[in-house]
Design a protein around this nucleic acid. Sequence first.
RNA 1: CGGGGCGUAGCGCAGCCUGGUAGCGCACUACACUGGGGGUGUAGUGGUCGCAGGUUCAAAUCCUGCCGUCCCGACCA
Length: 595
Amino acid sequence: MILHRKMIPLVTSKHLRETMRASQYLITTKKDSPADAEVISHKLMLRAGMIRKVASGLYSWMPLGLRVFRKVESIVREEMDRSGALEMLMPVVQPADLWAESGRWGQFGPELLRIKDRHDREFCLGPTHEEVITDIIRNEISSYKQLPANFYQIQTKFRDERRPRFGVMRTREFCMKDAYSFHSNAASLQETYDIMHATYSTIFERAGLIFRAVLADTGSIGGSHSHEFHVLAESGEDAIVFSSEGDYAANIEKAAALAPEGAAPSPQLELTEIATPGVHTIADLCQFLDVEPAETLKSLIISAEDDSGKTQLYGLMLRGDHELNEVKAQEVLGLTSKISFATEKQIKEALKCSPGSIGPTNLGLPLVVDSSAAVLSDFACGANHDGYHFTGANWQRDTGDYMVADIRNVVAGDASPDGRGILEIKRGIEVGHIFQLGTKYSEAMNATVLDENGKQQFMSMGCYGIGVSRIVAAAIEQNNDENGIIWPESIAPFQVAIVPINMHKSDSVKQTCETLYTQLTESGYEVLFMDEAKARLGGMLADVELIGIPHRIVVGDRGLEAGTLEYRHRRDSENQHIALNDIVNFIKEHAFKNS
RNA sequence: CGGGGCGUAGCGCAGCCUGGUAGCGCACUACACUGGGGGUGUAGUGGUCGCAGGUUCAAAUCCUGCCGUCCCGACCA
């Protein structure tokens, strides 16, 4: 790009680009969506010309898309400011030393993009900013009197995702609002946490999203108490769980499965080994024995590093119809490192049999039994002997010592942990996450203040994230039809579109449009004027609908002869005829004004 | 990282099996007609067929390796 070296002598308004005229804008809509787009928001964002891919997980925001992005950003900024948080801006590139201090340089894994500068010093691209902010605050704040304090930024993050997907929904480079609060006591942290909870709710409401706050696992960020904010959508990557009667809502990672009441019935059958050639899965076994999955036992072998860094295998036992919850299992086993399924090779070496024939009898590994599986009796399971299974297996009589715990994912229909109704499962897109970190980072990085008694104490911390770019995609997932996007008014790139018919032939159409454009613009609306002289009606309407502009005014000679214009909301299927003199007031009554 | 698919014009695709001329639709340019829901016609622009080797007189096509990319599984705003 060449910068103009000469001063431009005089710029009159006539020469300024009128950026809301289609003829001066860049509208790059497409009929076909690129073959690699899978979810609706990705397809529509590409078709509407909002974003363009640069590489996997890296997107450019085109002028149209950026307008929406900025709207979301403004809502987030306004509400954060209103909450009392202070905006600042930290660097994307962060020194390795800080990450070494918190211990995360080693923990974070390949998601952290590590780079070296010309002096061979190590840095990373910031995936989050706990280290940087804690470093700043430990130097800047030294008294409890300066607390609580909450700082935020809206900034580009980089996470080298193993699998970027769904367009702007899961990218490697993305925009996040991240906030970090500091406190001298737990009550103060809880107070700010509650304020952030309320602030987030306001933000997502203002953005026109249907969302739910749910209990969440804290993951690699660490900390204790945590909520996620999910936009409800079929394409969501997370399963979220609701109580049918009460307020309980949680991510499935976190949702507790209540232990069944009572103990396992006494054994009735003898333990019998039977040949089960070709039976490897629960489905195979059920068909072979003609039993239900809930009468069988699913045996999983997982592999994890213990505290000394040694790889250890564990046997996890679930009812045949249940699925392992890895977060719970990791917690139950008291492991700090992530667990993974043992490979076929590991299993064969340790157990001398294949994954399809494992069972709890004489397994020789630490055993955790899910509480639903622990009340089974006379069940079918693998015999730890290739090609054989047991029937009539029973706990204690046929197994060694084991631990009983909740290690499964809840399923729809389970009793709600709050005792009110049953659980339902829906899909959600995580757009926000708030955590109470406690003193995890302040202890690691020695961030202290003096308290009332002049004693040093570690600050408590909270952190609060919102995926700004992800909100744009989530809004589309929730608001679209076969013709394209239907923007919530508060984040629409333009509120109103003016579509002329045969403007190049009709002075009255042209004049009416120009006047209307000026009036609406001066009234504070963002108006997209489809002013290209020879554009065809069909194409313009298709574009306006694809782009998702909420209010559309069509101006044609036919209407003008009767003194009317045609108005249609993006969600309507019929036109309304509005008198020419009333149209500005009509828009004022019906359209959202951005400023 | 494991499993699978795909790389041919800006986008969507055909051609590959059976080696020999690179093709279609959309978009784009020009002109004409048309003009109330992606119109019609004529004439055009645009591709080292992902990259590198190999086989062959000859490779988009066959072989090998690499790269990119997407989807499905384990992570996260």
